[in-house]
Design a protein around this nucleic acid. Structure first.
Length: 226
DNA sequence: GCATTAACCACAG
DNA sequence: CTGTGGTTAATGC
């Protein structure tokens, strides 16, 4: 197997920035880079997991099969780590990850990852920070989903895509209406209706998957009150 | 009661 | 895969 030269990598994680030469070597010997197309599964719920995944480039959806239906837990954009909780926390994956656009990831051997956590405290620290930020985001998402009405939930997620994922008020939805419904816990019909209603009210412009935010102020209001 | 919200069903592009 | 219309159940004045 060809060794990765992680030291030369230009898209190192913040944690990996703090690794020294021989640690990067260890990482390089124990990781593999893989490219995925849109729709391909990076890892699957219920499968044995023995890798930590570093999402180098791209966008994925994290999904969990519930008792009733599929739930989209959240979208994750590179660069970030995936599967730390599900790989460290149990033998099998508790959720799946599917690419939403061409995506590049590094599969890191769990043993090597654990070694790095022990060897380099700065590395561990950065991993903990990332995990904590994730947990906070999840808590907020949870409260939004439970307490906001659907307009509010939709608005929050449109703003998230514009601000955090695409850094633009104009973007193409990476999800179908159905998936968007799975993300904000509603039905696909309701998503369709709400999008056209926001369009009619001149708050956003909808053209199939293409979205343009027009009245961001209003949308923010809806995201807080609706 | 009456209005609102949102799910479910059916059917058409 | 989407959009729309009708129906219905739950909840709140």
């Amino acid at each position: 197997m060809e060794n990765r030269s992680c030291s030369a990598c230009l898209i190192k994680s913040k944690a990996a920035e703090s690794l020294i030469d021989n640690e990067l070597e260890l990482l390089g010997q124990n990781c593999v880079e893989v490219a995925f197309e849109r729709g391909e599964t990076l890892f699957k719920q219920d499968a044995l997991s023995s890798n930590i995944i570093y999402l180098q480039k791209g966008l994925v959806k994290i999904i969990m099969q519930g008792p009733q239906r599929k739930q989209i837990l959240r979208l994750k954009k590179a660069p970030c780590y995936l599967g730390v909780p599900t790989t460290m926390g149990d033998k099998i994956n508790h959720y799946s990850a599917v690419a939403l656009e061409p995506t590049t990831v590094c599969f890191i051997d769990l043993g090597a990852f654990k070694s790095l956590l022990r060897l380099n405290t700065e590395f561990s620290y950065e991993i903990i920070v990332e995990l904590c930020k994730n947990e906070l985001e999840q808590f907020h998402r949870c409260v939004t989903l439970v307490q906001n009405q659907i307009f509010g939930r939709l608005a929050v997620n449109l703003l998230y895509m514009a601000n955090t994922i695409y850094h633009s008020g104009e973007f193409d939805l990476p999800l179908s209406r159905n998936e968007l419904a799975d993300l904000i816990c509603t039905s696909r019909e309701t998503v369709s209706r709400m999008l056209s209603e926001l369009d009619q009210d001149g708050i956003i412009e909808v053209n199939g998957k293409h979205i343009r935010l027009i009245d961001t102020k209003k949308l923010e209001e809806i995201s807080k009150n609706g």
